[in-house]
Design a binder for these strands. Sequence first.
DNA 1: GCTGTCC
DNA 2: GGACAGCAACGCCGT
DNA 3: ACGGCG
Length: 321
Amino acid sequence: SAIRPPKPTIPKTLLNPNDESQVRKVEGKEIKFNNLSKLYWPEDKVTKRDMFNYYYAVADFILPYLKDRPLSLNRFPGGIHGQSFYQKDVKGKAPDWAKTFPYSTSDGEPKEYLVGDDVATLLWMNTLGCIEINPWFSRVSSPDNPDYCVIDLDPDKHHFDKVIEAALVVKKVLDSIDVPSFPKTSGSTGIHIYIPMGGKYDYDQSQLFARIIVGIVNKIIPKFTSLERMISARGGKMYLDFLQNRPGATIAGPYSLRPKPGATVSMPLEWDEVKPGLKMKDFTIFNAIERLKVKGDIFRGVLGKGIDLETAILKAKELYP
DNA sequence: GCTGTCC
DNA sequence: GGACAGCAACGCCGT
DNA sequence: ACGGCG
Ligand SMILES: [Mn+2]
Ligand SMILES: [Mn+2]
């Protein structure tokens, strides 16, 4: 029979429930785990140890979405209510076995992103206080060509039910032009809708496509959605964020924990689950693993064959002149 | 959260 | 060992 | 040149 990738499995927990500091070899790579009883989500009594055990358990499911992607680190060393900060440059700081991706900022300083690879890299990133995972939309082998386009629904003050309503309009528009789409909760307030691009186009083209789609959606539901970047110009409406499709920009990836009360997870959904009654807190560190056991990874189409942009844009122009 | 420095 | 200080994004675009 | 934005 054909060789196929091994089915994802869920291992036993990595860390014992007692010791505050533990050292483990993960696939031959040594990682130190400290302050394991620190309450990262105090309201939910979820500790840093729980976070490591979660990511270790779901690693098989998450890693395809991290492998070969530069990672923006969003660090919460003091837990979800502590001071947080971003970090991109890990030059000279990552373990020697970790992969990195060189880049330079406008001032010309040579720097290096951490690059997603294996479970050791994932857990080392977690030791820095990275609760959530923010991977690029493209991989180092082709950094200018995203694997997917994202439509990011940012509700501001709107109820989650309105996000669901907007998501279903996005779905209807994409269906009408025969473009596949994959929704997930953000774990914070919104919904992310991914469209597979297959690395065939660049970020400008991907963003232009997202702009076309949200333009159509906004024409259908102008009363509560906006395309304005400036918050003050949105008039309290939900932001249909297409600008996130640009080099170096990120959103929390699938199965990522979020630094929010409830210890929510950015959870991939079936479209038939996107309906009134769906709640952000339906998916948390407490039930995500059980759901993965039952449903498996329902998001992999995102990394599959990309759409044909010319055909899709033509159909859109035809149907929505 | 980690590293290096200083006592 | 313990107490510290220092350090940890980025580019676009409107004004 | 600065600040808002994600
Ligand atoms: Mn968002
Ligand atoms: Mn956004």
